[in-house]
Simulated assay, not measured.
Amino acid sequence: MDLFTKVTTILVALIAIVYAIFSHYPVPPVSPIMYQWKTWGSFLTHKKFNIFYIDKQINNGTKTLVCLHGFPTSSFDYFKAYPYLIKSFDRIIFIDFLGMGYSDKPTGHSYSIMEQADIVQAVLNHIKVDAFHLLAHDYGDTVTQELLARIKEDGLQLPIKSVSLMNGGIFPAIHSPLLIQRLLHLPVIGFFLGKLNNKYTFAINLNRVFGSGTSPTMAEFYDFWAIVRQNHGYRVFGEILSYLDERYEHEDRWVSATKNTKIPLQFIYGPADPVNPAPFEEMYHKLIPNQYFDKLDDNIGHYPHFEAPEEVVKRLNQFLKKKGF
């Protein structure tokens, strides 16, 4: 047996052992706040899949906010912003995308931004939402871009009153996915890496996108992981990451829709974001000069609504006030 064969055999054996350990790792316990979040929710069956959403009516008014989350987490990302949001809105809706959060996470599925936009429309139609404001983050930004394109190019009648985006790769040319995202996106390597994911590797990789001094506590990382671990969500990371290719494929459609939308648009930006580095601000002002760009403190990273929830809601309210809402 030559050296290469020996090394390969050892590597395969190690992978098999590690996989055997992690594939049988118990599901993390549910924290009280996670339990409350899930009890608030309901499920809508969309094309045989169960989609989790929360529809919270806070007051009797009609000021409604729809929140869309990023990859690889869930609507639970907004739990720190929620206490501030309820002071400004009468109804708040959170949606977990297919493959994430408490929604179904089918394997071997062709995940797409188009399908996620269909899901958002289906949930809003199901719960009968009239005019609403939209707050989105990361992956949710791209879904929002598709919705804007449907309004602009396809004549979709969707009563969005304003759009606020946060730290999403809306400009593919300068978007910089983490190494782990690129590896997970690879056909074979990504398949095995996805199956080997665990709460420690998840926390290490997710921590890289937070700013200085704004990282979640280990308990909060475990909450994030516990939701990812639901229905083995970590196993479909690579399949969901097809959105990286979609961003390039539909770049003209989505950037044009963002640039030319008649809907008031705001971008809330955490500058300490390795996924959307400094050139992002310059490109935004160049391509979308007449819209609002709110840059947060230098230490805020990729999850502004988690890292600086009070400030994000403050900027959102200031924007809506300027636009007469």
Rank of each mutant, 00 (worst) to 15 (best):
T144L: 04
A149D: 12
V143N: 01
G169Q: 06
V120I: 11
Y200P: 02
G155W: 09
D138R: 03
N205T: 08
R182I: 14
I127R: 06
K195S: 09
K152E: 10
F202C: 06
L183E: 06
I151P: 06
Q157L: 02
V123S: 10
A149T: 02
T142M: 12
I113W: 01
E146W: 02
I180V: 14
F192T: 14
P159I: 07
A173P: 00
G190R: 07
G169V: 07
N197L: 13
L186S: 08
I151M: 04
F192H: 04
I151W: 08
F191A: 05
D141R: 02
R150K: 14
V143D: 01
H126C: 09
H175F: 15
P177Y: 06
A122D: 15
D154G: 03
G169D: 06
A149L: 04
N197P: 00
V123G: 07
Q116V: 00
Y139L: 15
L135F: 14
N197T: 12
A203M: 05
D130K: 13
D138T: 08
N125S: 14
F171Q: 11
V120R: 00
A131M: 00
L124I: 07
F202G: 13
G194N: 12
R150Q: 14
E153L: 11
A173N: 13
F202Y: 15
K161R: 10
I160T: 03
T144S: 14
N197R: 02
K161A: 08
I174N: 03
L135S: 05
E146K: 12
L148N: 09
T142H: 00
I151R: 06
Q157C: 03
Q157K: 13
K161N: 08
A122R: 10
A149C: 11
L165N: 00
A122P: 04
I189N: 08
E146Y: 00
M114H: 15
R150M: 09
F202I: 11
F191I: 00
R150T: 07
K195N: 07
